[in-house]
């Protein structure tokens, strides 16, 4: 770190503080709003200091839900989101580490074409293939199910590529030593490759969990039942009310709750995450 002198350092700090304020202020507003009385917010008289409805609002949000368009308790939505995000993150890691293993360590017909097909799917995110994907999921009767929410999002070219790159840095001698030590392909994968990939898997898990948690378009399409909706869809439905007042404290509380799991995952896994990005354990 270069030590900057006087004025320049203050300027830098001021810019950083402005940046922090831009990011943090809306979060602060959401937290404050979730503790206030709805009538005050609706009147436009919202205070910038926390109100006294914290426990009441959060109890209402988590266990009861709103009285408007979706009556589902947010606790249930969070559970749906959590299950979906976990299925997506774990599924993606499992599928891609196995396919990367196949591509890097085995010689089979059409190995490179298969690799390129996987690579090309990078250009086909859910939004592009949304109609055929919806059709398939609907035909398989997977609408309004965890399978429907997670399966179409599990195949991942990005993660496969990441593991492929990592496997290619693992010295060949390790595989050869394993062969001489009597470890077959399965044992080499389980005893050597998986432990070595631990930090990479952790880093990917953080990214993929947040990606899964923040899914909006796909759950919006395939969930119709309230008890299957994810928290992201829930917030959206709560805001749109046809004839009643939007219950802003509940909406804000939901937003705050929606932020918590990703924050939790990042904080808990940060150490592994950084190690996975910057260092390979060799």
């Amino acid at each position: 770190m270069v030590e900057e002198e006087g004025f320049r350092r203050y300027v830098a700090h001021i810019i950083l503080w402005i940046g922090i304020a831009i990011v943090a202020f809306p979060v602060y507003i959401a937290i404050v709003a979730s503790t206030q009385d709805n009538a005050l917010i609706a009147n436009g008289q919202m205070s910038l200091l926390p109100g006294g409805h914290f426990f009441q609002t959060y109890y209402q949000t988590i266990f009861v839900g709103t009285t408007g368009s979706t009556r589902e308790p947010v606790g249930n939505m969070m559970l749906n989101s959590l299950i979906t995000a976990l299925l997506i993150a774990v599924g993606k890691i499992a599928i891609s580490i196995i396919s990367a293993y196949a591509i890097v360590y085995f010689r089979f017909p059409f190995r490179m074409p298969i690799f390129w097909i996987i690579f090309i799917t990078l250009m086909l995110p859910v939004e592009v293939r949304i109609y055929p994907t919806y059709k398939i999921v609907a035909d398989l009767h997977m609408l309004d199910s965890y399978a429907g929410l997670s399966l179409p999002l599990i195949a991942s070219a990005t993660a496969t590529l990441l593991f492929r790159q990592f496997f290619m840095t693992v010295p060949d001698e390790l595989l050869e030593a394993s062969r001489i030590d009597g470890a077959g392909p399965f044992r080499f994968f389980w005893d050597t490759l998986l432990p070595l990939s631990r930090t990479n898997m952790a880093a990917l898990f953080v990214i993929l969990f947040i990606l899964g948690w923040n899914q909006y378009l796909w759950p919006l399409l395939i969930t119709t039942r309230d008890d299957m909706q994810t928290i992201q869809i829930g917030i959206r439905k709560m805001i749109t009310t046809s004839d009643a007042l939007t219950e802003w404290p509940t909406v804000m509380a939901t937003a705050v709750l929606a932020m918590l799991p990703p924050v939790f995952v990042v904080v808990v896994m940060q150490k592994l995450f950084v190690r996975g990005l910057v260092e390979t354990e060799k």
Binding site: E173, R179, I180, L196
Partner: peptide, 17 residues
């Protein structure tokens, strides 16, 4: 594995974990 040989590699190829 079935040749009853053992090998020492140039970079040792120890299992790092």
């Amino acid at each position: 594995a079935d040749r009853d040989i053992a090998m020492v590699f140039q970079n040792y190829a120890l299992y790092p974990h």
